[in-house]
């Protein structure tokens, strides 16, 4: 493990552990442990028997995370193995009681030539909820990783829109133990200069997709090309009369795109790609993910979000 003793010993109260290793040439769950408030389920058959992948479902008792809950999951994917971690429905974070924060931590190690896909449904924080999530991935230069991390504005069918108190999501990827490759932290809190709802405007979903590793180069290239094509249509070329348009178009005129996305390569030799998305509807993001991650089917046996 990371070898940074001290705090680990103290905080190593995992509520779940899963290990995937090659047994008889096939990816196999060799260890699976979970306790309240987390439940891990490993169905035998998810995709076709021709693909070598295990699927791990993370479930919570009562269908959501209660104020003050701390969930900590540790996953190891051995050399050459493939694993997908997903959920059965969105992760609900219930209202905060006594300003307590709920926490979810995932630590994962991905072996050489292995693939881990963390492809959950979105997190939905109810009004006043406080939620903090941290995911740490340790990879080699030939490990492969897909991470989808996303949040919706709340129960908007009941009129909630970005009404939680706090949401923090941290994703870190370290190469060969401790070289920082990707460090990202998104913090949304009400106690800011402007409310979260003001900052999000008409958008209800914020999503991030990370695609890393040599095995997934074609997935990266495809999403980069397609996002560029999709977004290019939405930019208007400024007219020579610029300077007047601020007033003339403020009343009417075309609106902003319902789904905005941008892609960035990161890491040495552009080893990874991150896509960030803001969308008006959750369904449009499901469609986006289904479409762009369909190329993972040969590895995982089924189309993610299919």
């Amino acid at each position: 493990m990371s070898g940074k003793g001290g705090e680990r010993g103290e905080r190593k109260m995992e509520t779940g552990i899963a290990a995937v290793e090659k047994v008889g040439g096939r990816s196999t769950v060799t260890r699976c442990f979970s306790k309240y408030p987390l439940k891990l389920i490993v169905p035998n058959k998810v995709g076709s028997s021709k693909t070598d992948a295990v699927w791990i479902y993370t479930l919570s008792y009562g269908g959501g995370i209660v104020s003050g809950d701390r969930i900590s999951l540790s996953i190891g994917v051995g050399d050459g193995c493939t694993a997908a971690v997903t959920t059965q429905a969105s992760t609900k974070v219930y209202k905060s009681v006594d300003s307590k924060c709920s926490e979810q931590v995932l630590e994962a190690r991905i072996g050489r030539n292995a693939l881990l896909a963390v492809i959950p449904d979105p997190v939905t924080c109810f009004s006043t909820a406080r939620y903090s999530q941290k995911q740490v991935f340790r990879v080699f230069s030939d490990s492969n990783l897909v991470i989808v991390d996303w949040i919706t504005s709340g129960r908007h069918e009941s009129g909630e829109k970005w009404e939680f108190e706090l949401y923090r999501s941290t994703n870190q990827i370290f190469l060969e133990e401790d070289q920082p490759l990707f460090l990202d932290s998104v913090l949304l809190e009400q106690a800011s200069t402007c409310s979260i709802a003001e900052r999000m405007q008409e958008y209800h979903v914020i999503a991030m997709v990370i695609i890393l590793g040599p095995m997934l180069k074609h997935v990266q290239n495809q999403v980069q090309d397609e996002v560029k094509k999709m977004m290019s249509r939405h930019f208007r070329v400024p007219t020579p009369t610029a300077g007047h348009y601020m007033r003339s178009e403020s009343q009417s005129g075309p609106t902003r795109p319902a789904l905005v996305a941008s892609c960035s390569a990161f890491g040495p030799q552009a080893i990874g790609v991150v896509v960030r998305i803001a969308a008006v509807t959750t369904e449009s993001v499901y469609m986006f993910l289904r479409h762009h991650l369909a190329t993972l089917e040969p590895f995982l046996g089924v189309i993610p979000y299919g």
Partner: peptide, 30 residues
């Protein structure tokens, strides 16, 4: 004042929408 004197471990994005739009700069035709 709000963000002053923080350790780098606390560095975070607080306006994801602005970040997404900034990332689109390369897609502009002109």
């Amino acid at each position: 004042k709000k963000w002053m004197d923080r350790p780098v471990e606390e560095a975070s994005q607080t306006s994801p929408l602005v970040d997404i739009v900034q990332g689109c700069h390369g897609y502009l035709f002109s």
